[in-house]
Design a protein around this nucleic acid. Structure first.
Lengths: 225, 225
DNA sequence: CTCGCTTGTTACCGGATTGTCACCCAAGGG
DNA sequence: CCCTTGGGTGACAATCCGGTAACAAGCGAG
């Protein structure tokens, strides 16, 4: 999920970007009107957060330009908190509005609400540590790296591992979750699946940093932070 | 357009109802949790405005109950303006939030924004990137080119793809949206539909620029504005 | 009824995914 | 030292899945 954040205050922009990145969003930034429009066209973000007061222009212009070509949710930020701004923003097609100062938690709650309203929240996405699994797109993103494409079985395996991040998941449970039933004696399948998954997601597949083996028990997803 | 307003303060409720009625909405009212649920079930409103503080309960309960059965937009009202309320409301699936006191104008602007967001106000047209889909005329215009005529199924497919432009939409979701039911095993229909649609809209159907395949997952509408 | 368009069905091709087998290595017990 | 066990690895086969074509079945308009 990609979010465009526009603000001319470097500190606030960094804070917003950090909060969003922590929550698993990809953030693209801009500091004025022209760069915001350029980035929007180039990156096609899923949501835009626009400061109203910008050097040489306002967030209203950006909002208006975005609305002409797209229906992505737009959230406006303002320090003023005046009703005029609010009404004007909503009339221009903005979807929400936040008054500075705001807490990162509030920002995230509102962003999530907007995405859900827009029907963009996949419903099927989970994350743990720096891992973000998209169950619908079958992709895994490790930290800020490019998403990796996964197969159906790999997705199912990661689903249960991420759901139990940091804890050992027994071989039997893995087998039944991924293949659902089976003589459940088929450990070879699991070996292969883990092997193939490691080739895709581990930096050094011979020395797994994420998908740890718990000898005699099962596997464990190691999450830092 | 029918709106449910819930508040235990008769004066405020009357004010809200009046403002909404002036703007052309049909308003149904309730003053506590049980009556709100009853009215909601009986009247099936298109939007709900809920006060948080109610005698013998809270608007949260109503919101939760509504969300279990419906996706209509919900707006919460509170006098407190505490962040806890905001976060909780949004987590429960509320779509917006207004702090008392508020002006009728603000209320209306927000209500309209919500309805627009919910797609209840769309004139039967949607666009993303350079694509413009007319749901009534069953036509698609790509950039500045001549509109292409679409069949019913093709329109439905594009509808969900455009609504999720740039994102993978899983096979299952596509099947249920277009055909709505099916043992969901009928991937062949989807294959054919996509194939036929590509013949119509892609410059080079063998090398799709718009309707991308996400192997093992689903399809994605690629928007390069 | 017939024409023409839309939708559903069957079949085949090629590449990706998954299942199977054979073998390696390391640890542990007799 | 030999054997067994559990896991990792590579190669290959079976199967699945998407793209394509051809054709049949539905269906509305005239």
């Amino acid at each position: 999920m990609k979010i465009l954040a526009v603000d001319d205050d470097p500190d606030l922009l960094a804070l917003v970007a950090f909060a969003l990145a922590q929550a698993g969003f990809v953030v693209v930034k801009a500091i004025d009107v022209p760069s915001a429009l350029r980035v929007f066209a180039a990156e096609a973000p899923d949501l835009a957060i626009l400061d109203i007061n910008l050097p040489g222009g306002t967030g209203f212009e950006i909002c208006e330009a975005i609305r002409k070509q797209s229906r992505v949710p737009v959230m406006m930020l303002t320090a003023r908190g005046e009703e005029e701004d609010l009404v004007r923003a909503l009339d221009l097609g903005a979807d929400d509005y936040l008054t500075k100062p705001f807490s990162p938690r509030t920002l995230l709650a509102r962003v999530r609400a907007l995405l859900r309203r827009a029907g963009l929240e996949t419903g099927g996405a989970m994350s743990a540590g720096g891992l973000h699994l998209d169950l619908e797109a079958h992709t895994l993103r490790v930290g800020e790296a490019e998403p990796v494409k996964l197969t159906k079985l790999e997705t199912r395996l990661l689903q249960i591992l991420i759901a139990n991040a940091g804890h050992v998941v027994g071989t039997e449970r893995l087998l039944t979750h991924v293949w659902g039933h089976r003589g459940s004696g088929d450990r070879q399948l699991l070996k292969q699946l883990v092997h193939r998954l490691r080739q895709k997601v581990e930096v050094d597949p011979a020395e797994p940093a994420l998908l740890k083996t718990e000898s005699g028990a099962g596997y464990r997803l190691d999450v830092k932070a």
